[in-house]
Design a binder for these strands. Structure first.
Length: 794
RNA sequence: GCCCGAGUGGCGGAAUGGCAGACGCGACGGACUCAAAAUCCGUUGUCCGAAAGGGCGUGUGGGUUCGAGUCCCACCUCGGGCACCA
């Protein structure tokens, strides 16, 4: 609340009312409210009311810290889009502002500010549309956002505001990238492993404490071999791998940015899997810690389960089946069902298919593979479809019983998960069950379910529960009679290991993070390539590597369906910038710069740290300052370990597996390397709801401007034509945005703030009704009237 | 199919296990006004009743309790996430 209860004594009461010619002169009107609000905002600035002192460094004020508990309140920072804020954006901001003010009034030192996530596709697309350089439009948009946010009376410490596009900010984004580039994951360091400097890996190889792949000594390897070995360990690395190529955007995008139906999260263009040489981040090294440390966080179960789902850990075993083309490896979560295996299935793209297929089956298999290849992923993933497949004519040997089993090819097995091959247990897996029924394959039972006949021809589905095993023993592995799946798995895994047929194994759905983009408006990679093509990080004193000036910032985009087009980075066109001569410590040599830029997410992976120490030119954040604001606490909210981090983080649920996963990953790397005291960036997460608004479509299914729609007798009309109403997230695309400027103009910011808070609980989505806003305005008028005479102003 | 979350007036919603529907919108009636807007006052869950008053009411069916919107069990509906993941 920004209604002053004790007006500054030296200032006269306002004397303006625009509520109408004959309305009382001192009524609380929109214009009076704005005047009061502006005056207080100026005073807060002058008095530096909301500046939060640090324990040390340029923003230090130790006297003000003494004896006060600290709290760090953070909003997810916005993209400064060209259309400005609408009333949906500040919902969370108003909530955090009220909370911050409350904490300040109860004696806390409150860290609370706001920055701008200004790199990335939206800013660039807006610039392309308007033909202006993104730096110009971004700066204009940021100023506009600042103006709009200030008008809302948010109690930010303005000194701490940052924009990710500022070279003094992205200098450190580049520095952190180089930290990651110059690190490797040592799984043997500590109980769960940790990142360590790459120099320590080299030292291990040089000293012989770590053996090379083929056992030769490090000094016997050629320089190229050593490079390859080291590159294979870096946490940021270039690799040729299947990536998501989006011709419509002209760039590759991360898995997390591809929707379930195989289109780009942004722009909704088709995305194609292609092998390309791109920058990756080894987030998979952190998969287990990203799962287990969720237990330390005060987040909702919904978000935690979305992250767990995305990481997708499965515990099971790798099993090798002998075949004419050599061993076929499969991953299974149910090694205990090996005795029920009656066939194997390979993905159509599996590399062994050619070698396995018998001459008489070649034509059929080739046909099937061709068919599968022409299908979009989306079609292949429709699980209501019949399970097609063809036999290769080849056989493999089941290691537990020596049985010869047919090898099939079917597109319900995906190359991108596990090994791209499965062992099929039709009695214990519904997909295998359906496939066996359809293709007349045997379904022998290996468990005796309590409520079923042992004859599987009477079964309607596979059985997946706990039940005593039958037909499941050989000379050295005896599962018969055991009733526990967990126990049977354990015995089987041990048997596989002892007999060299496999071993316990874990797989993840999570893939390494595709980190490069072929766009202009992003952080340039602080990387140069030597004449042999080896990447080198730039030394600290050459940072920031400033994004080069050019008029030619438009990305090269393609026909969205042109799968075979190739990405072209805008930076590639700038010969003057890409070809350089540098001294990286071994004399001046020619190099070529990396021409990719980092993804939108890079800047938001660490901004909460820069708020703490925004002017530090020596480090991205001072360790003492970080420990003060974000350090771990002895005990967390439920008596468990408290990993440190932001005390309250408020934002939308849409970042559940994007920003929140990436930021946790970067934070953990920086923690491992000793730069941070906190294990996690965000201790408590609160997801605010969305503000929904009515959107209207005409008979061509095109949205019409919602403000121009009129209601008559329960029906809706635009320009005299009937339109249909639906509810959706407020925004430009549904043409239903309401700007806070208009509401502030008519009623004042306090009315808007009260209305947004009175609409319902902060975590619920709620429909915006401009018509209802007047209720809170009347409330404030009533409040005002109780203290100020409307006629006299006393 | 699996995992979350939610069901209360015409609408948004409020209620540490203790008077259900606060507050707001809308609607209806009134004041002010030549009139309208703005503002103010009153009524407004539903049924019976002229009124006083009474019956019924928090998705459905059970249960715990002196007492349930709230706790437990089963179900229904809606919203969100994941999904041929081996």
């Amino acid at each position: 609340m920004t209604v002053p209860t004790d007006r500054p004594a030296h200032e006269p009461a306002p004397a303006v009312s625009t509520g109408g010619d004959d309305s009382p002169k001192f009524r609380y009107t929109g214009s009076l409210a704005q005047e009061i609000e502006a005056r207080w905002q100026d005073r807060w600035d002058a008095d530096r009311t909301f500046e939060a002192p640090n324990p040390s460094g340029p923003l230090a004020d130790p006297d003000k810290i003494a004896g006060r508990p600290k709290i760090y309140v953070l909003d997810m920072f916005p993209y400064p889009s060209g259309t400005g804020l609408h009333v949906g954006h500040p919902l969370g901001f108003i909530g955090t502002d009220i909370f911050s003010r409350y904490k300040r009034m109860t004696g806390h030192n409150v860290m609370y500010t706001m920055g701008f996530d200004a790199f990335g596709l939206p800013a660039e697309q807006y610039a392309v549309q308007t033909g202006q350089h993104p730096a110009i439009t971004t700066n204009a948009n940021v100023s506009n956002y600042r103006r709009q946010l200030r008008r809302l009376g948010l109690s930010h410490d303005a000194r701490r505001s940052v924009s990710t596009t500022d070279p003094s900010y992205y200098r450190w984004t580049q520095w952190i990238f180089l930290q990651i580039f110059n690190s490797w994951y040592d799984p043997d360091a500590g109980p769960e492993g940790r990142a360590r400097p790459i120099s320590e890996l080299i030292e291990q190889y040089e000293s012989g404490r770590r053996p090379t792949a083929d056992g030769r000594s490090w000094s016997d390897l050629s320089p190229a071999e050593r490079d390859t070995t080291i590159e294979g360990h870096r946490l940021a690395y270039v690799s040729e791998a299947p990536v998501n190529w989006c011709p419509g955007l002209g760039t590759v995008v991360a898995n997390e940015e591809v929707t379930a139906d195989g289109r780009s999260d942004r722009g909704n263009f088709p995305v194609f899997k292609r092998n390309m040489r791109q920058w990756m981040m080894r987030i998979t090294a952190y998969a287990d810690r990203l799962i287990s440390d969720l237990d330390l966080l005060d987040w909702t179960d919904a978000i935690k389960s979305m992250q767990r789902n995305w990481i997708g850990r499965s515990d099971g075993a790798t099993v090798h089946f002998d075949s004419s083309a050599g061993p076929i490896s499969v991953f299974t979560t149910r090694p205990d069902t090996l005795f029920g295996v009656t066939f194997m299935v390979l993905a159509p793209e599996h590399p062994l298919v050619d070698a396995l297929t018998t001459p008489d089956r070649r034509k059929v298999v080739a046909q099937y593979r061709h068919q599968a290849a022409s299908k979009k992923d989306i079609d292949r993933q429709d699980d209501t479809r019949e399970k097609t497949g063809v036999s290769t004519g080849a056989y493999a040997v089941n290691p537990v019983n020596g049985e010869s089993i047919p090898v099939w090819v079917a597109d319900y097995v995906l190359m991108g998960y596990g090994t791209g091959a499965i062992m099929a247990v039709p009695c214990g897996d519904q997909r295998d069950f359906e496939f066996a029924r359809l293709h007349g394959l045997a379904i022998p039972p290996i468990q005796q379910p309590p409520d079923r006949d042992v004859d599987t021809s009477t079964w309607a589905s596979a059985f997946t529960g706990n039940a005593p095993y039958i037909n499941s023993s050989n000379g050295s592995l005896r599962l018969d009679g055991i009733a526990s799946v967990a126990e049977a798995k354990r015995l089987t895994n041990a048997w596989l290991e002892e007999n060299g047929h496999g071993h316990a194994a874990v797989t993840y759905k999570l893939r390494d993070w595709l980190f490069s983009r072929q766009r202009y408006w992003g952080e340039p990679f602080p990387i140069v390539y030597d004449i042999d093509g080896n990447p080198h990080g730039l030394p600290d004193d050459q940072l920031p590597l400033v994004l080069p000036e050019t008029d030619s910032f438009s990305p090269r985009t393609f026909d969205p369906d042109d799968e075979f087009s190739n990405p072209e980075s805008p930076l590639d066109r700038l010969e003057w910038w890409t070809n350089v001569e540098l001294d990286l410590g071994d004399g001046v040599k020619p190099y070529r710069r990396d021409t990719n830029v980092m993804p939108q997410w890079a800047g938001s992976c660490w901004y909460e740290l820069r708020y703490l120490d925004p002017t530090n030119e020596e480090r991205f954040v001072d360790p003492e300052v970080e420990r003060y604001w974000m350090g771990p606490q002895p005990v967390g909210h439920d008596g468990h370990e408290h990993p440190g981090g932001v005390d309250l983080y408020v934002g939308g649920v849409e970042h559940a597996v994007l920003h929140l996963l990436y930021a946790r990953f970067w934070h953990k790397v920086l923690f491992d390397l000793g730069h941070l005291s906190s294990k996690e960036p965000y201790y408590r997460l609160f997801n605010q709801g969305y503000i929904l608004a009515a959107a209207y479509k005409d008979d061509r299914e095109i949205y019409v401007e919602a403000t121009e729609v009129i209601e008559r007798d329960g029906a809706y009309f635009h320009d005299g034509q009937p339109v249909t109403r639906e509810w959706g997230k407020m925004g430009k695309s549904l043409k239903n945005a309401v700007t806070p400027d208009d509401i502030c103009q008519e009623f004042g910011a306090d009315t808007l703030r009260l209305y947004e808070m009175a609409m319902g609980p902060l975590d619920a989505s709620r429909p915006w009704e401009t018509r209802d806003v007047v209720g809170m305005y009347r409330f404030l008028q009533r409040l005002w009237r109780n203290m100020v005479d409307e006629e006299t102003g006393d």
